[in-house]
């Protein structure tokens, strides 16, 4: 059997809750027994709303936050011991949501891309060539190397961020809402680029988003996160066409769509009041005629 690039097993993360005077008063389970794996060259989507734990999972995979319990296997190796080490960072890189704030405004494009090259020990003489090569990969002209972030459009900045993430030739790219700050036409081009790069470089993606329509078109498999737990997983087409969990149905029912065909596949359930629904509200929804699930 081929080993998956990323395996997450029973991952948990809880944060302490403290009173204003620093006394421990409880804990929040931000991530609760999450398990999934991504095969080589695949795109896995994590869907969820704010507070669902999707960014915490990304941070743990990146080695930025230690898990409370559970294992993260990258290429079969437990990152528990190597979390955040150069060897770990060479395998996994991240593209953040807002390129406006994830690029250092005081660094030119080539300086930004050179940082990981330097950390990776690439000889100084080869760096300029590699920068050009990376810019070419993200379809930016080599002349952009000397530009500063404020001279670039949103889509161009995100391309630079992608180039920077690819600098160390990682196997896994974690994409945290990579296009939510972009216009639709720009979003389409960036996703197009990611699909191409994935094929060319045999990259594996973990795609984190709340945009279900985008996820449907980009991720082969999807996991729906609700209050820290994966409530539904499976092939994207199957989950979207036949959602089984009430929360997935609610999410799908909430997506604003642009065609009658989409409207037809959207579950018809009444929208609830308030924020992220509680288990009781979900149950009430089902009783209110939410359907046969």
């Amino acid at each position: 059997m081929i080993r998956p690039v990323l395996e997450v097993i029973d991952l948990c993360k809880s944060f302490p809750v403290r009173s204003p005077f620093g006394r421990l008063t409880g804990e929040v389970k931000a991530v609760n027994n999450v398990s999934f794996s991504i095969g080589r060259g695949k795109v896995y989507g994590l869907a969820g709303e704010s507070g669902s734990g999707k960014s915490t999972i990304a941070r743990m995979i990146m080695g930025l936050t230690p898990p409370t319990s559970g294992d993260i296997l990258l290429d079969g190796e437990d990152i528990g011991s190597t979390g955040g080490s150069p060897a770990h960072r060479r395998k996994v890189q991240m593209v953040f949501q807002n390129p406006g704030s994830s690029l250092n405004p005081r660094r030119s494009v080539s300086q930004s891309i050179t940082v990981p090259l330097h950390a990776n020990g690439l000889p100084r003489a080869d760096r300029a060539r590699r920068v050009t090569e990376l810019l070419d990969m993200v379809q930016l002209p080599a002349s952009y190397a000397e530009r500063y972030p404020h001279e670039l459009s949103g889509g161009q900045k995100q391309r630079v961020a992608i180039a920077r993430a690819l600098a160390v030739a990682p196997k896994l790219l974690v994409l945290d809402e990579p296009t939510s700050a972009l216009d639709v036409s720009v979003q389409a081009k960036v996703i197009d680029l990611l699909v191409d790069l994935g094929r060319q470089l045999d990259l594996t993606f973990l795609f984190i988003s709340h945009d279900l329509s985008l996820m449907r078109n980009f991720a082969e498999k999807v996991g729906v996160l609700y209050l820290g737990s994966l409530v539904e997983t499976g092939r994207t087409s199957v989950v979207f066409e036949n959602p089984r969990h009430d929360y997935t149905r609610l999410l799908l029912a909430s997506v604003p769509v642009v065609s009658a065909e989409e409207e037809a596949m959207r579950p018809r359930i009444p929208l609830i009041d308030g924020e992220i629904p509680t288990a009781e509200q979900l149950l009430a929804l089902r009783k209110a005629g939410g359907g046969e699930a």
Binding site: N217, V258, M265
Partner: peptide, 29 residues
Amino acid sequence: LFAAPQEDYTKALIAAVPRLTGETRFGTV
């Protein structure tokens, strides 16, 4: 307008929206 956009810009804009049904072709924009 959504059923039959007339202008190229509108057509491209609508085509760029990812569809819940999953048939978006990103290369067409």
